Simulated assay, not measured.
Amino acid sequence: MARIALASSASYVDDSELDLLRRAVGNLGHDVTVEVWDDDAVDWHDFALTVIRTTWDYTDHHDEFLAWTRRVPRLRNRSDVIAWNTHKTYLRDLARLGCPVIPTAWDVTDQDTLAKHAEAWGVDADATEWVVKPAVSAGSRDTARWTDTDDALTHSRALVESGRTAMLQPYVDSVDAHGETAVLFVGGELSHAVVKGAMLAPGEGIRDDRDSREKITPTTASDAQVDVARRALRAAGEALGGGLDLLYARVDLVAGPDGAPQVIELELTEPSLFLPYVDGAAERFASAVTSAVNSLGRV
């Protein structure tokens, strides 16, 4: 038996997926507790493995969170992976290394720059819907879908002026009809996939109450989707200079204009894994936790 910590934030210790995972790992004979990541009373050296899960307040405490990851021994995913993955400029690395990603521009604050990007992407700037979001964010916080370029630029400028990195992307129309496909890996192996329904309504601005809209449906990822997901993970490894030893990974994909999969996000930090939606998914994750403990050596 090993002591396992599932790291959470104070507001999400009662998350249903977290409880399912705690029970699945406990059923394998481990002593599993949920611990709040910024609780100074926790001695992380007491655990054979700490698994980052529902630490969803980290975006408000990014520097502190990264410092915490560097202090925790036997952390999964690793601190260098977290530092790279919590800033969405990682998309530039994926694109540079040949992985198909959704077109993205950074810190766009004027019409001329937006028009140049639109031309490069082969879209009509005035007829295109735009998504603007900060590069450090979780869920759809501070994210909006705009039908008017002036609104998109106003949002992007506000993020830049507040000291944040702003992302601007053309909205992918296929999401409205087909959603996003999340491809999940545990212990380096393909585990399951789900389809996530569209979250952003056109022109509604910034909202923090979209979670109730999320519709999740189990699916079987296509060969093309699995191939792109694996390419994203290989590119991540190359960007970080070697093997990542990932306990978990989620690759979110959309269908581009030609129908081919594109990466919209690579989630290696604290993603929802949609374990309740797929039979056996929690048990596969629990087995991967045991393998990670065995590879690290028990405390």
Rank of each mutant, 00 (worst) to 15 (best):
V183F: 12
K88M: 05
D211R: 14
T181G: 09
I216C: 01
E238G: 06
D208G: 03
T181H: 09
F65E: 00
F285S: 02
L168E: 05
I264W: 10
L200T: 11
T50G: 08
S174Y: 00
A182K: 12
L28Y: 12
S174K: 02
D142H: 11
D126L: 07
D107P: 03
A41H: 12
G280C: 05
A67N: 04
I4G: 02
L91H: 09
R23L: 14
R74Q: 10
P257Y: 09
A260P: 02
V72P: 04
L246M: 08
G188V: 05
S156T: 11
S295W: 11
S295T: 15
V101H: 05
P134V: 06
M1F: 13
G242V: 05
V136M: 08
V186H: 10
K196R: 11
S156G: 08
D151M: 06
R76K: 15
V32G: 01
P218K: 07
L91V: 11
S79I: 00
R70F: 03
F47A: 02
A177R: 15
D245E: 15
E283N: 00
V25L: 04
A125T: 05
I4M: 06
R141L: 15
W106L: 04
D148N: 13
S191E: 04
V123A: 07
D148M: 06
A193L: 10
A83I: 01
L153V: 03
H178A: 11
D208Q: 14
L184G: 07
W84F: 13
W106K: 00
L18Y: 01
D209E: 07
A41E: 14
V42W: 06
R157M: 13
